[in-house]
């Protein structure tokens, strides 16, 4: 995580962070005007890069593939449009259908990248707490899922590797059907193994008193930065809802006559949502400049013990 984002996460509490993430997902979902979606995509990519570099390129490759698939799928199902570019058997590609597919692909990418940021910054415990106040059983399923999906993937990979060492019959059947059977068998094995892991976790929940949980609200200490950010987020949500209900920033798909124009309102939507998405970078940068200009000149004890407690 880049130092600017780290600074931002330290300056607000988890509840405010969750609100920010919810707003990013909301923004990615509601607009499909190409000017807005492309601007949003650029901001999302920039924020994602700073939030978590480790998986960035793998995710970029996967999302590129998904974009191409979405584009092709839309070219097949939406063949409206008068300005025909070319024809291949069963598919007529027009400027309109290509634009439609492109915009839909970008919108889909925005949703994927907003979840990439969510996945990097989200705080499992907070969501778990919010859920456990409303639906206790769902909260357990949530925490088990979050904890165990990566574990199940590991179990699957390990079990698949180790299975090769057990299955050593020289007369083994190498037919396709047998291989499918083996894969199904392997999935069953992995499920069996995962269940025993789930059981251990239920012991942990019991021994940590979850079955007698008394807490009914979320504890978060609010600072001035939390109030500022939440006010901004509330304004952003209200503004976007108003735009949504008025159909501004929306494109009428599938009509074969996609009309997208740039207006000053589109410009405002773009500007506000760019700030909403890149807010962590802007705040981090502001804090950094402030630190560089004033605070870092203050002498402070910098011995390792003091750093540890700081």
């Amino acid at each position: 995580m880049h130092k600017l984002i780290k600074n931002f996460t330290l300056s607000i509490n988890n509840f405010t962070l969750l609100m920010y993430l919810a707003n990013v997902i909301f923004i990615s979902l509601i607009f499909n005007n190409p000017f807005i979606t492309i601007a949003i995509l650029i901001c999302l990519l920039m924020t994602s890069w700073l939030v978590r570099r480790k998986k960035f390129f793998n995710f970029l490759k996967a999302s590129g593939l998904i974009f191409i698939l979405t584009l092709l799928f839309n070219l097949v199902i939406n063949q409206n449009g008068t300005d025909v570019l070319f024809k291949i058997p069963f598919v007529t590609v027009s400027t309109q259908s290509l634009t439609n597919g492109f915009i839909l692909g970008i919108s889909f990418l925005n949703i994927l990248w907003s979840f990439y940021i969510y996945d990097s910054l989200t705080h499992t415990k907070l969501i778990f707490e919010i859920l456990s106040n409303v639906f206790k059983s769902i909260a357990i399923i949530f925490v088990l899922t979050v904890k165990f999906i990566p574990k199940i993937i590991d179990i699957f990979n390990d079990a698949r590797q180790l299975y090769k060492f057990r299955n050593s019959s020289p007369a083994r059947d190498k037919s396709r059907i047998n291989r499918i059977k083996q894969t199904m068998h392997l999935n069953e094995i992995v499920l069996n193994k995962s269940i025993s892991n789930f059981m251990n976790m239920s012991d942990s929940l019991i021994s940590k008193g979850y079955n007698q949980r008394r807490q009914s609200f979320v504890h978060e200490t609010n600072k001035v930065s939390d109030y500022i950010m939440r006010s901004f987020l509330t304004m952003s949500i209200i503004f976007n809802l108003v735009m949504l209900t008025n159909g501004i920033g929306q494109v009428n798909f599938g009509s074969g006559n996609v009309d997208f124009s740039f207006s000053w309102l589109i410009g405002i939507i773009m500007l506000l949502n760019l700030v909403a998405i890149t807010y962590p970078i802007l705040i981090g940068e502001f804090h950094y400049l402030w630190w560089k200009s004033f605070i870092s000149k203050t002498t402070a004890s910098n011995i390792p013990t003091a750093q540890k407690y700081r």
Binding site: H123, E129, N200, M201, S204, K208, Q212, R213, R214
Partner: peptide, 21 residues
């Protein structure tokens, strides 16, 4: 590996203490 319910030790302590109110 299967004993921590939450992501960090701090969260884990919060979780246990919040459970008793």
């Amino acid at each position: 590996d299967n004993q921590m319910v939450t992501e960090t030790a701090r969260d884990e302590f919060h979780f246990v203490l919040e459970n008793i109110g």
